[in-house]
Amino acid sequence: MFKAELSNPNILKTSFEAISAIVDEIQFQTDSEGLRLDALDRGHITFLHLDLKASLFDEYICDEPEKINIDTDEFMKVLKRSKSDDRVLLSLDEGNLIITFEGQAKRTFKIRLIDMEYEPATPPAIEYPTEFSIPFDLFKNSINDIDIYSDKVSLSVDSEKFKAFATGEFGEVNIEFIHGESVKEEASSVFSLEKISEMLKADKFSDNVTLSIGNDMPLTLSLKMISEEGELRFLLAPRIEN
């Protein structure tokens, strides 16, 4: 039996704004610890991991592990119909994920479970020279600034500053932010702006974003709830010199 209840739909909604922009299908894996998913996009450019711990839910029952395969667009269409103060219940029957919104009315939606084309990837462990946190809004604004000039961004960090830089045909933009964190090495890599923007669609998950950057290494971008009961993490392959 699987049953999970949330006091509002916002974490699921904001997570799937990003997830549905990146992958077509996902497999939720549930057990007594909580609900998680790992997914890799078709081009193998972005990997994502969502972890929602059992304690995040108002009620959580999972007496045996389940694998729930769904189409992300179909799930997002349903989540978009939620109101921000609706209670959300997730459960299963033979062949369906059942999503119930309880507010002024009780609304029950069923989404057919699908066969997955691919087994979900296991999250890779990457050793990074740097890790630091910056405000989510600052990062999102930087990406919007960069968008004036280019479709790619150079992200770098040193002991003092986080920097975002882009150059284009008509000019360039340089953003600097004193991060106030303990970063001992310098690192810099270039990333697709479009791919970063997809991740930042999860704009209500966390006030801060934790970034790990290396030299020509993937970007790790992690959104964590203050309570540490939920994390949405992405890995993005860099653009590199040919």
Binding site: H44, I45, R239, I240, N242
Partner: peptide, 11 residues
């Protein structure tokens, strides 16, 4: 001169 890499090397 520059291209999008993939994550394949990390799995």
């Amino acid at each position: 001169k520059e291209k999008q890499s993939s994550l394949d090397a990390f799995f």
